[in-house]
Nucleic acid binder design. Structure first.
Lengths: 144, 144
DNA sequence: TACACTATTTATAAAGATTATAAAATAAGA
DNA sequence: TCTTATTTTATAATCTTTATAAATAGTGTA
């Protein structure tokens, strides 16, 4: 068991959230996954281990994890949300061809937040920023 | 008829997209609207003028407008997309209480795009950035 | 270890947004 | 005006997510 998983389970215990085999497995999958999976991805991946698990269980627990602060939900239009186990603050760059999502680090956009707050009078809570383009594989494919 | 509407209709004509009364009305509504409406908002707003119009027509035409570059789609998780008539480059700040969306201007995040491109090897096309918080009305309500 | 209490899971159905389909209507050029 | 391809309409289907209620299972306590 990785340290991250241990910490995550501790967080659940501290918050009074029961640790079920399903939650254990979903967390483990999220931590090991580098792919920002959808709820359905997770459901399918754990089908072998939990043949009777309901999709609702996946959704319910992803919501619990989000509320506890373990997981971030990345929302898009009509497509499914993707879920990201929170390790450190980072942004995403997304391939418009194949859908691959890659993390990258950047200091944070405090200046934009301040300006927006000043101009609009809003009280700023947080922001969302992501970059779209073509990943190396896909741009190689379309190049020739 | 406003200049913006004239220009929009010209754009359609140049692109070979037929100008129907429904398209005319949807465009007019989008241009006059300051509220970033959903497809359903538009459908409801035009119900009086077009009692027989189908929701599919609204969706179809919003897609056409998007493809032609007249309109931008703002997508969120399970909630409805919102549609924004493109005037000039701007960002949005969104109230998490009441859902209000306000425009604000900012130079553009070229630096982040460059860094991300350099680090990940992606070819960058564009980015999305929006700020979340509480609008003046809502923060006043929760303050006392 | 067994018990009791409550949270969680399951199975199912429902809700809501968006798209597909095919027939009827219509814009735009000849 | 006529013709034709595009668009609209009406309807149903799809897909993601949530609601519901009964069955199950964690967790603390005796």
């Amino acid at each position: 068991m990785t340290n991250q998983l241990k910490e995550a389970l501790d967080t659940l215990k501290e918050t009074g959230v029961r640790i079920t085999p399903q939650r254990h497995a979903i967390l483990e999958y999220l931590i090991n996954s580098m792919s920002h999976p959808t709820a359905d991805d997770i459901y399918k991946a754990l089908e072998g281990k939990f043949p009777n698990m309901s999709v609702a269980t996946v959704y319910n627990n992803l919501r619990v994890f989000r509320e506890v602060g373990l997981v971030k939900e990345l929302t898009y239009g009509d497509a499914s949300s993707r879920f990201d186990y929170i390790t450190s603050q980072h942004y995403h760059i997304i391939c418009e061809d194949c859908g691959k999502i890659v993390d990258f680090h950047y200091p944070g956009l405090d200046e934009v937040e301040h300006l927006a707050s000043h101009v609009t009078g809003f009280k700023v809570a947080h922001h969302r920023m992501e970059i779209y383009g073509a990943c190396p594989d896909c741009s190689a494919k379309t190049a020739h």
